[in-house]
Design a protein around this nucleic acid. Structure first.
Length: 236
DNA sequence: CCAGACGTTGTT
DNA sequence: GTCTGG
DNA sequence: CCAGACGTTGTT
DNA sequence: GTCTGG
């Protein structure tokens, strides 16, 4: 699944890549993120009148929730069932979004031993988008919280080597269709499938990433003597 | 009808 | 063991 | 996802 | 808000 990811690109680069409007406020905060964890504010792409980059809290709080803490549990939405779940149904129809990322982490269980974190990214290090849903929750005092969740599916060949779920990565040519709310849930659900591109790579990294408070470039350095997991055989 | 839940992952 | 917080 | 707390009373 | 369970 996806419980941590990275976003090293600048907001302006992200807005340009996804053809979205940004804001001065967002552009000012431009520190690279090597360890994005649930509950944190991160920029996402949504499309109302305009396509825009906005900060949003990771962990979807349904608009009807009494206690916003429910968002801590809704960091992922299972693609196979989200169309029937009360927590996601409304968002699937009205509030689909893209979550820009340039890599993510998975933890490989090793029996009793501590799990080994791995970093997965495009071989070119470029931006991509997870498929997601967002919501707006209104607190009793009127304060509004915008939050999101990342959709998961079965793993592709690469991820299956060490995990049995993965986040949905959309192909660039699918992004506009996902964001267009005129498209019905039944029409967009087929996009929620394992990533079938062959441009990802995965490798073990330091367990320093385990602690959500750590954020530095060393988190995505391959462990020395560690093996790479290419998606396909080397292409020369 | 009303009351109460509303989720995923992983592990056993 | 289970829940909350980042 | 992992890390860290998990409680009450009373006092500062 | 909407679904499930009693």
């Amino acid at each position: 699944m996806c419980g941590r990811y990275t976003l090293r690109h600048q907001p302006k680069e992200i807005a340009e890549r996804f053809d979205a409007d940004s804001s001065d406020e967002l552009d000012e905060v431009a520190e690279a993120r090597y360890n994005i964890a649930p509950t944190q504010l991160v920029p996402i792409i949504r499309q109302l009148e305009r396509r825009e980059l906005v900060n949003c809290k990771w962990g979807l709080i349904p608009f009807w929730a009494k206690d916003p803490a429910i968002g801590n549990k809704l960091i992922n939405a299972k693609s196979e069932t989200l169309a029937e779940k009360p927590s996601f149904k409304h968002a699937l129809a009205k509030r689909r979004c893209l979550i820009p990322a340039d890599g993510f982490y998975e933890w490989q269980k090793k029996g009793k031993a501590p799990s080994q974190p791995l970093y997965i990214r495009r071989q070119d290090g470029g931006l991509f988008a997870f498929a997601g849903l967002w919501e707006e929750w209104k607190a009793p005092d009127g304060k509004r919280i915008q939050s999101f969740t990342i959709i998961t599916t079965e793993p592709n060949e690469l991820i299956a080597q060490f995990h049995h779920r993965m986040a949905v990565i959309l192909k660039p040519e699918e992004e506009a269709f996902w964001l267009e709310m005129k498209n019905k849930p039944a029409d967009v659900l087929p996009l929620l499938r394992p990533y079938d591109g062959n441009d990802l790579e995965a490798f073990p990294v330091s367990r320093a990433v385990n602690s959500p408070s750590v954020n530095n470039p060393s988190l995505i350095e391959p462990l020395s003597e560690s093996a790479l997991f290419p998606d396909k055989e080397e292409t020369a």
